[in-house]
Amino acid sequence: MYDVVVSIVLYNSDAETVKNAIVSVLKSPLKLKVYLVDNSLHDSLRVLADIDKENIEYIHIGKNIGFGSAHNLAIRKSRNETNYNLILNGDVYFDSTVLPDIFDYMQKHVHIGQLGVKTLYPDGSLQSSCKMLPTPFDLFARRFIPKPLHGLFKKRMMRYEMQHRSLDDIMNIPNLSGCFMFMRAGVLEEVGGFDENIFMYMEDVDLTRRIHSKYDTIYYPQVAIYHEFAKGSYKSPLLLKYHIKSAIYYFNKWGWFFDKERSKINKALS
């Protein structure tokens, strides 16, 4: 059994960036396995498995099946290999103390189904890695309202991003960043993993929300990771299309303006 199985989904990814993520994982003293699930048409990224042939398994899909679907493949393959899965973006890196720390914390707190950590930009500034459950307005305002008008909604946006709370405190949060999702394998199996109807974007919100309904989903700021965070949907019309499509699916699933569970959860965090 591995202490943790890590899955990283690739799609025409920068090999050097992903290498940094893999090295961050493997320098941990824990017993680890890494699945690289490649949605790229060609398998040029197969060379990344040479970093550690014993503990890295490369899976070439040959077509883009989506973020959640690719991670689900690795989750299913690891079902009998570990008690913990880490869903990791290929543009994340961290030091060797991070995984042992959160592994020990999860071992001691069996009510936790998922854990996220403090997330920083490469320059050391804080990234928004824990949020309330989104309303349609929250997503629209963050993405489409012009910057000169942001001040009109500053208080609401700060609250949505939990900035009214100390981000140095451990908190039970329903919406954790998808770049680093540390989860119990049994919990993942219980809730069914990622919703494969979501191609990309919002799949992390949906999954964390489902876990949160049964277990604690903890923001744990005692350790930190670095995330380059390209904000692809701000630059690519195609990625923006995926983002909008996934948001529509999410709100059709959970409710647009009348979502009693969201109202109850968010009120408790206010």
Rank of each mutant, 00 (worst) to 15 (best):
F137V: 08
R143S: 11
R143L: 10
R143N: 12
R143C: 08
P146L: 06
P146W: 13
P146G: 12
K147Q: 06
P148F: 11
L149I: 07
H150A: 10
H150S: 10
H150W: 12
H150Y: 09
G151Q: 13
G151A: 11
L152H: 12
F153E: 04
F153A: 02
F153S: 06
F153C: 05
K154H: 13
K154R: 14
M158N: 14
M158L: 13
R159K: 10
Y160W: 04
Y160V: 04
Q163A: 09
H164N: 10
R165Q: 13
R165V: 14
S166W: 04
D168Q: 15
D168G: 06
D169M: 03
D169L: 02
D169H: 06
D169Y: 01
I170K: 02
M171H: 12
N172L: 11
I173W: 00
I173R: 00
P174C: 10
P174Y: 06
N175K: 04
N175P: 03
S177N: 05
G178F: 01
G178M: 08
C179V: 04
F180R: 00
F180W: 03
F180H: 05
F182H: 00
M183Q: 03
A185T: 14
A185E: 02
G186R: 08
G186N: 03
G186Q: 02
G186S: 12
V187H: 06
L188I: 15
L188S: 06
E189V: 05
E190Q: 03
G192V: 11
G193M: 12
F194L: 04
E196C: 11
E196L: 10
E196I: 08
E196R: 11
E196H: 08
N197H: 15
I198E: 07
Y201L: 02
E203Y: 01
D204S: 03
D204F: 00
